[in-house]
Simulated scan of single mutants.
Amino acid sequence: MRKSDKKLDNQIRLALTDVCESALKKIHGFEWLTHSAQYDRFPDSLRVTCIFDTNEHLEAFKASTANQQLQQQIQDELQPIGIRIRTIQKQVAYDTEENCERFHDGNWARRLQDG
């Protein structure tokens, strides 16, 4: 990773920390989020993954307006650092602790890598 990529990655992490802290307070079942990117194809390669505790909580969230609100908040936090996401619905993914435990024995690094 180039020095400029590392700096951008850190800015993204800080912006998404604000999103995460807000979601923890407002969204039932939300646990944490992470991001990944291939900086040679940035920003189209940026992927934000939001993690919920159970599939039941995730499905309730996806059926609510909170889904669009969270996506909008992600866009709003990234915009001041110069990141404009054209297809937010494709670049925000959702997963659960329940599924990670079931399919990857709780190994998030492996689960996120398998994509």
Rank of each mutant, 00 (worst) to 15 (best):
K26W: 02
I12T: 06
Q71Y: 05
D5Y: 13
A93T: 15
I74H: 01
L14S: 15
I81V: 15
K3C: 06
Q11H: 09
W32S: 14
L16H: 05
T96E: 00
M1K: 07
A109H: 15
D95E: 13
N55H: 06
E101W: 03
R102Q: 08
W32T: 09
D44W: 07
A93W: 11
T54H: 03
D76P: 03
L58F: 08
C20Y: 13
G29T: 02
A63D: 04
A66C: 10
L112N: 07
S64N: 04
A60E: 11
W108E: 10
H35I: 15
H104Y: 15
A15N: 04
N10W: 13
A37I: 02
G106T: 13
E98C: 07
A109Y: 14
E101Y: 06
S22K: 12
T54Y: 07
R47W: 09
K26P: 00
K26R: 03
G82I: 08
T87I: 03
D5K: 04
L112G: 05
R47K: 14
V48G: 09
D18T: 14
E77I: 01
F52H: 01
A37Y: 01
E98N: 13
K90D: 13
R41E: 13
V92M: 03
I85T: 03
E77R: 09
A15D: 03
Q38N: 15
T96Y: 00
D53T: 05
T34Y: 08
K25E: 14
L70Y: 02
Q89P: 08
H28A: 11
K90S: 14
S45F: 11
G115N: 10
E97H: 10
V92D: 00
L46T: 06
K7S: 04
F30S: 02
K3M: 10
F103L: 10
T34F: 03
S22N: 07
E97Q: 08
Q113H: 13
S36L: 04
G115Y: 06
W108L: 13
A60C: 11
N10T: 12
R84H: 12
V48S: 01
G106L: 02
L24K: 04
E56Y: 08
C50G: 05
S64L: 02
R110S: 05
H35V: 12
K6L: 11
R86Q: 14
F52S: 10
L16F: 12
F52T: 03
D76F: 05
G82N: 09
E56K: 10
Q89D: 14
F52D: 03
F30W: 04
T65C: 05
A60F: 07
S36T: 12
I51Y: 09
G29M: 02
R41L: 13
E56D: 12
L46V: 09
F103E: 11
N55T: 04
A23N: 05
Q72V: 01
E98W: 15
D53C: 00
H28R: 12
R86F: 14
M1D: 07
R111P: 00
E59P: 00
D105L: 05
L70K: 15
K90T: 15
R111M: 06
F52Q: 02
H35E: 08
W32I: 01
L78H: 08
I51F: 12
L78V: 04
T87P: 02
L24P: 01
H104G: 01
L16V: 06
T49K: 11
L58M: 11
